[in-house]
Computed example of a mutant assay.
Amino acid sequence: MGETNALLQRNKILKRETALATAAVYESMFAAEDGTVPATFQVIYMVGWKEHPSQQKAKRRGSATVSFQDIQKQFVGGGGGSSS
Score class of each variant (00 low, 15 high):
residue 1 M to L: 13
residue 2 G to Q: 04
residue 3 E to W: 07
residue 3 E to P: 01
residue 5 N to M: 08
residue 7 L to T: 08
residue 7 L to D: 15
residue 7 L to N: 14
residue 11 N to C: 03
residue 12 K to F: 04
residue 12 K to I: 02
residue 13 I to K: 01
residue 14 L to K: 02
residue 16 R to C: 07
residue 16 R to P: 02
residue 16 R to N: 07
residue 22 T to I: 00
residue 23 A to R: 01
residue 23 A to S: 04
residue 24 A to S: 04
residue 24 A to D: 05
residue 25 V to E: 01
residue 27 E to Y: 06
residue 29 M to F: 00
residue 29 M to C: 02
residue 30 F to N: 06
residue 33 E to P: 00
residue 33 E to M: 00
residue 33 E to H: 00
residue 33 E to D: 12
residue 34 D to Q: 03
residue 37 V to N: 08
residue 38 P to V: 02
residue 38 P to W: 04
residue 40 T to S: 09
residue 41 F to V: 14
residue 41 F to T: 12
residue 42 Q to D: 07
residue 43 V to S: 07
residue 43 V to P: 00
residue 43 V to K: 06
residue 43 V to D: 07
residue 44 I to R: 10
residue 44 I to M: 07
residue 45 Y to F: 11
residue 48 G to H: 09
residue 50 K to V: 15
residue 50 K to L: 11
residue 51 E to K: 11
residue 52 H to M: 04
residue 57 K to W: 01
residue 58 A to C: 05
residue 59 K to H: 08
residue 59 K to L: 13
residue 59 K to P: 05
residue 60 R to M: 05
residue 61 R to A: 15
residue 61 R to V: 13
residue 63 S to N: 11
residue 64 A to H: 11
residue 65 T to R: 13
residue 65 T to L: 10
residue 66 V to A: 10
residue 66 V to D: 06
residue 66 V to L: 14
residue 67 S to P: 02
residue 67 S to N: 07
residue 68 F to Y: 09
residue 68 F to I: 06
residue 69 Q to N: 14
residue 71 I to R: 14
residue 72 Q to N: 10
residue 72 Q to M: 11
residue 75 F to L: 15
residue 76 V to A: 13
residue 76 V to T: 13
residue 76 V to D: 13
residue 76 V to R: 12
residue 76 V to C: 12
residue 77 G to K: 11
residue 78 G to L: 06
residue 78 G to Q: 07
residue 80 G to K: 09
residue 81 G to V: 13
residue 82 S to Y: 10
residue 83 S to T: 14
residue 84 S to F: 10
